[in-house]
């Protein structure tokens, strides 16, 4: 499956970096909250979050997504 948020060399795209930044600022978000804050369709948000989760940039607890250490290193936060 061709990826949209993470490049083949494992780096998040510019759009994905913005999404990670938003999740960092809000200290965790649900897909519905991301969709509401960004205006993007829910299916697209779920797809992006899944991709970033599978690439190790996000972890999920009770439906909310948080940055992993790997993501924090990328964002330098």
């Amino acid at each position: 499956m061709k990826q949209g948020c993470v490049s083949p060399d494992g780096k998040p795209s510019e759009r994905a970096m913005k999404l990670l930044q938003l999740i960092h600022e809000k200290k965790g978000l649900t897909p519905e909250e991301v969709a509401s804050l960004t205006g993007r369709p829910l299916f697209q948000v779920r797809s992006s979050l899944r991709e970033l989760y599978e690439a190790g940039f996000l972890e999920e607890k009770e439906g909310k997504y948080f940055l992993t250490e790997k993501a924090q290193e990328f964002l330098k936060v």
Binding site: M1, Q3, G4, F43, Q44
Partner: peptide
């Protein structure tokens, strides 16, 4: 199914839950 779209990859029906 999983597929590529003009708005990125999708996983059906998971990505459309509740819709």
């Amino acid at each position: 199914f999983q597929a590529m779209t003009t708005m990125g990859p999708i996983k059906f029906p998971d990505d459309f839950k509740g819709q």
